[in-house]
């Protein structure tokens, strides 16, 4: 197994500085971190990767068995850490990767120094008193929406996504391929993302955790961020003055500063 290739791992920044591992969420790839990386790489060693099925990961490594639960993704994170021999890692998980980070840290707490959960939600569906924000019908609608917008996707797209870093002439196409995923894989990832319930895993977190939420986020509302903060003992909650689900794009300086402050603190 070659996790470096499978997950298209990139390492940049200061070689001897603490390691910050950035995990992207559903819908995108490691490019999503592009605006926060310049700031963070001044102080940290940054490890970026694409989840299998996203970006320029090895699509051939994708299987429905491994990737219909978030555990499969968490295992990938641990394999990346093991293969690169990363220690005292500050693991930053955005969106669904926040729960992937929780699962990874619960499995091998000794591997991680800190967790940063960026716009996390442990459960997107409403359940009794819990307000995740969505109903099952909403999620089915999302799956339809994904499907309609992948209509133009074809097998012709696949070689571009699989990519060849040695061929600069496809760089433009790769740019265009950002956020593009094989529709069959995207569908499974969407289901896995929005139908998982990891509320019970929060209490098991022993790694020092910061919850970073946005002041207005349609996907992970503030009460959900509060819920995560309440369930993880000793966690800190930071509310970024940012709108939307991707503060690393809408408020990159603020997001980078919040990550750096927590990651750099003793």
């Amino acid at each position: 197994m070659d996790a470096r290739r499978r997950n298209n791992v990139t390492v940049i920044g200061c070689e001897d500085a603490p390691t910050v591992l950035l995990a992207h969420g559903f819908g995108c790839d490691q490019n999503l971190w592009r605006l926060v990386v310049p700031d963070l790489s001044k102080r940290f060693r940054i490890v970026l990767f694409d989840h299998v099925g996203s970006g320029r990961s090895d699509v051939a490594a994708w299987s429905p068995q491994r990737y219909t639960t978030l555990d499969g993704y968490a295992e990938d994170v641990l394999e990346i850490c093991a293969e690169l021999d990363l220690r005292d890692v500050v693991l930053v998980g955005h969106s669904v990767s926040a729960m992937i980070a929780v699962l990874a840290a619960n499995r091998e707490p000794e591997r991680f120094a800190k967790l940063v959960l960026l716009t996390p939600s442990p459960c997107y569906l409403d359940d009794g008193d819990y307000r995740g924000g969505f109903t099952r019908a909403d999620i089915d609608e999302l799956l339809d929406s994904l499907e309609s917008n992948y209509l133009g996707w074809s097998a012709a797209m696949a070689p571009v996504i699989a990519g060849n870093p040695d061929r600069p002439e496809v760089a433009g196409e790769l740019e265009a391929a950002f956020c593009r995923t094989d529709p069959a894989i995207a569908r499974v990832f969407a289901r896995t993302t929005f139908l998982s319930d990891n509320r019970a895993d929060l209490a098991d977190v022993t790694v020092r955790t910061a919850v970073l939420q946005c002041s207005s986020d349609a996907i992970a509302p503030r009460e959900v961020g509060q819920f995560v903060h309440d369930r993880i003992e000793g966690s800190v909650l930071v509310t970024l003055d940012a709108i939307g689900h991707c503060p690393q794009l809408s408020a990159p300086e603020q997001t980078a500063a919040a990550i750096a402050e927590f990651a750099g603190a003793r």
Binding site: L32, S145, N149
Partner: peptide, 25 residues
């Protein structure tokens, strides 16, 4: 709501990254 999730996870990030996005259903 379904399209709103799509907007947050795909449309808005792509628009931020590229400065434009077209033909989204």
């Amino acid at each position: 709501v379904g399209d709103r999730i799509y907007h947050e996870t795909h449309f808005a990030p792509m628009l931020r990254m590229h400065g434009e996005i077209g033909g989204i259903a």
